[in-house]
Design a protein around this nucleic acid. Structure first.
Lengths: 221, 221
DNA sequence: AATTATTTTTAGTCAAGCCTAATTTTCACC
DNA sequence: GGTGAAAATTAGGCTTGACTAAAAATAATT
């Protein structure tokens, strides 16, 4: 059962979910920035959400979602992405126009509405941005991924995970400005050393060695 | 251009619109009852809306919408009825389950969303309850009506207006419990005097004389 | 016309969510 | 280890939209 939250509570839960990576916690300042509010307001809300059992708040060390909080967050993500799918697929919105409207629609509270919408859209696994849509139990669809080193020239792909991430590898990717969600096209591949040349949507071209390309798990799009 | 209002402001505008008949004004108590709040809260809001130029507030004598307020109200009615149509027609909701959800959806603010939804639904003129949907300019669709006296036996009809309503006629209708929106089926008609027998959905049977039946404008459903 | 009942308004309070300013804590760097 | 910058928290205040209780206005009844 999912408790009924206020608009502001939901916004905070979602922000924490978005900022919190595996293991890491979300910091007050980052949450405030995301919601266009101030740190002090966030502290208030974290206390409130901690009392409700949705968030674990370690003062000065950030916040993480509890199991209960994560379930709420996943249902919000589910609603957001289903509405985005509806707006693009059925109402003909552009993929770049839907965020703000979905932001409002996701707060409409009706289990039945969400289930019916999901069904109506054909239970889509991914939204128009390519992001996965959790099911009613909060499970994400399986990703079909392959290492960048095995991608063919010309394929349009997206980075969805890094295999066995060592500190030095993450540092290298960070240096190059390569992160999860990067969308690109394979421009060239050298058989000699397995190195790959990518052109991103936004313009910059990246060249990564074969050793690196083995670790980058891509998804076709 | 329609100003952006808070949820509570919109709720009040809509309540006033719903209570206010042609000419009449909406009373504080009735607004409070409809919104499940208290009269004093409504007084506060009426002052605020009057300052914004959406409502004309005659203290102790009720409130009426200004032209600006009425435009806002019509857009809310438009959104509400379009969403109800969507829920029933596309998501398979029952006509009796949609009100609460539509109540939330109608507050989502995006002109574009409403226009696209309208288009997607095929610009419907009436919602699943048979209520007319205003267009983007706030105009209601024309009703196709015919006097009850001309309705054939077996027709399923609804009372949408009373032609040339005299006080005595309205009194008679009130006595019989016949009002706008009444849904019924024509069970019999006497050629001798034009009198008509109706059976309503809710059970009771009404018999009205030919003289009365001339004044009752019905719509097929 | 006076009294009573009802409705409306006014006055003062409260919680939710935000804010600013001041204080406390943490962390990075010398 | 001490110091300063950044971040987080606390303290106190404001606005919105609700409330209760009391006062005022209107309507109804005798």
């Amino acid at each position: 059962m999912t408790t009924s939250l206020t608009r502001s509570e939901e916004d905070h839960i979602k922000a924490i979910h978005g900022l919190q990576q595996a293991g890491t916690s979300a910091f007050t300042k980052d949450i405030a920035d995301r919601l266009h509010t101030k740190a002090s307001s966030v502290t208030d809300m974290l206390k409130k959400l901690a009392e409700k059992g949705l968030v674990k708040h370690a003062p000065y060390y950030g916040a993480t979602l509890t199991t209960k909080g994560r379930r709420q967050a996943l249902m919000l993500v589910r609603k957001h992405r289903l509405w985005e799918t509806f707006l693009v697929q059925r109402l003909g919105f552009g993929w770049d126009e839907v965020h703000e409207v979905a932001e409002q629609l996701e707060h409409v509270g009706s289990e039945k509405l969400v289930e019916r919408l999901d069904e109506y859209l054909g239970r889509p696994a991914f939204d128009p941005h390519g992001d996965p849509i959790p099911d009613a139990q909060g499970r994400f669809p399986e990703r079909v991924t392959l290492p960048l080193v095995d991608c063919a020239v010309g394929e349009r792909i997206r980075l969805v995970a890094v295999k066995d991430p060592s500190d030095s590898l993450l540092h290298l990717l960070n240096e190059k400005g390569i992160g999860i969600g990067l969308e690109a096209e394979v421009r060239a591949r050298q058989d000699f050393d397995g190195s790959v040349e990518l052109r991103t949507k936004q313009g910059p071209v990246h060249v990564v060695s074969g050793r690196v390309a083995e670790h980058l798990l891509m998804e076709r799009r």
